[in-house]
Design a protein around this nucleic acid. Sequence first.
DNA 1: GCGGGCCCTG
DNA 2: CAGGGCCCGC
Length: 741
Amino acid sequence: MPDHDSTALLSKQSKRRRVDIGVKRTLGTASAIFARANASLLSAMNPHGSEQDMECAVVQHTDGEKSNVLRKLLKRANSYEDAMMPFPGATIISQLLKNNVTKNGGSEPHFQGSGLSSTGSENHQEDVCSNSSHDSPQECLSPFGRPAMSQFDIERLTDEHLRAKRARVENIIRGMSHSPSVTLRSGEGDREGLPQPPSPRESYRENKRKQKLPQQQQQSFQQLVSARKEQKQEERRQLKLQLEDMQKQLRQLQEKFYQIYDSTDSENDEDGNLSEDSLRSDGLDHRARLDDSTHDRSDNEMSDLDPGHFLDRARALLREQTLVLDGDKPKQDVPQGKGQASGSMHAEGKHLAETLKQELNTAMSQVVDTVVKVFAKPPRPVPQVFPPLQMPQERFAVNGENSNFHTANQRLQCFGDVIIPNPLDSFSAMQVPGVNDQTEALPLVVRKNSSDQSSALAPPGTHHHPSLHPSPLSATMGFSPPSFRHPFPLPLMGYPFQSPLGPPSAYGGKDRSSPESLDLSRETAGLRTKMSSSHLSHHRGCSPTHPGSTTEGLSLSLIKSECGDLQDMSDISPYSGSTIQEGLSPNHLKKAKLMFFYTRYPSSNMLKMFFSDVKFNRCITSQLIKWFSNFREFYYIQMEKFARQAINDGVVGAEELSISRDSELFRALNMHYNKANDFEVPERFLEVAQITLREFFNAIVAGKDVDPSWKKAIYKVICKLDSEVPEIFKSPNCLQELLHE
DNA sequence: GCGGGCCCTG
DNA sequence: CAGGGCCCGC
């Protein structure tokens, strides 16, 4: 218990203007951060805050760079195929189409709009042309455009004479293909077919062409070339149609493939980039392989084989997933026919996706249920009010009895704390600033215990550890228990209980917990006490501030961000579905006001106990302490006011002052702390209020109010009058229970 | 130096 | 009710 009866203290107080009861609080919290640091730190630590912001920005920038690099890599890989392909594997077709387009001498609109990425390929090619050689379109051919065409032509052009002139024919064709206004395939030559006068650029090209074409070229040869050209064009048309069909099929297959991948990966993989990368790289590999075969196969071969390859891959994937589902849907065979593949594949993929989702949800629900069952078991035998097996354990825990639920909840907290592997991890993690960097607050908490136990913690200078910090995205991810996969303890990493400083009862002299409260709630409270005791604060010198900044380096903004960070962490806590809250709600304020009827000077540990449904950090603790400070302020103001009023009313003796529920003073207090008047104020509060009023009365009558610190003596008296807060207040649902009684 | 308290202010 | 200043005990 705090020692309040030091006469020396009183004499000192009389000298001071300040009225500080000097109450020795129990193990303190970190409220000093608010009390002290706010003012000085705001200015002193603003650089820190900005620095952190900068670092956050850097981190973000790094992430962005990562993604950019990834994008660049992908783009570069794709650029090997001349385009970013919406669907991997489409490049081959595009190349074929491009070749055909090139040969045909023009980009046909229906090709450009025929889906896939022929447009992109052509655009890319055009860019290359415009960038590298404005004046020599011949150089703009794709790397293998010429070889492919030559090989193709060689098979057709058996004529010795034609083969000798092949180069010139190609020149003609190229000139046609790269003339934006070429529309005629007339054998009379491209120059005559130009409907518009050539641009300067066009003229220059024509000049080059003239230089290459022998002037003595004969008419008969031109006709022959035209015939051959038409023949080739007919072949290309047919090929084109085939390719279009294959394109469609391939596109559909790719869509199905993607759907399957997305529907499965998006659920399991929190890091979507990973799956996407793997998929994309996979597709790139696939494309690379296909491209290698492009040069060796005929178009028909390739178009026949590639979709089949895709189908095989899709089938393999489906089989894998089906196996994963433990033969859940063995009846569903992958489509066999290529024609029906797209349609049935589509349904299959969707079905698989749905099945996977259901399976995942079921599995997760089972896991959650199991965990809840294990930790929802009442710490002590509970009267079996309910049929043991007729009510689901979960529901029993939640709705059966609030106290049980509460303890279960606290046990979960303990569990979450226990599974923390290493406080140093969280300490290191906190060093790394992040977008939602909650680390600032955590190290302090950790430090407290760790320093008590071991001084081996990282010195203040060793900040900026490699990031063990998860990306902010991970904080908003799925609800699967983070403890099983997170690099560091998440929700409660700020409360490592690795350092028993002593029995829980040792924390502070203000422990007003009922002696019989031996349940886990108390244990939890003890643990919390340890973790939140003032010892922690004594090691703030190790606070992970930036170099140059001292303990004072925690700016208010950082503290506030910490609150937000902790709030974020609650989202991923294993018991996020329960009543754990990130911040103080109006209900918490109401509860605090009701608690004020029992305790006017609650310790921070006590607050932690009774607000166990709140994730405590320095911010929350300070806020709660501030609340009670404000409550006290109002309380004492009212007392003084009514005491003076009584004196003015002619009251002579303090004995005449009594406070009942009808008293005006009580109504004022009740209006403040119990506005709805839906809580039955304990009788003890009336007694305390009466004592307080009389203390004020006597002091004023005695003329002590001339002393600026005259209230301090009263505070010392009142602070000893706290009574124990009923256990019911420890329940997160105490408001409902209390107000409905 | 830190936590915690009171006082004042908005 | 919160922020800030100031103070005290440890």
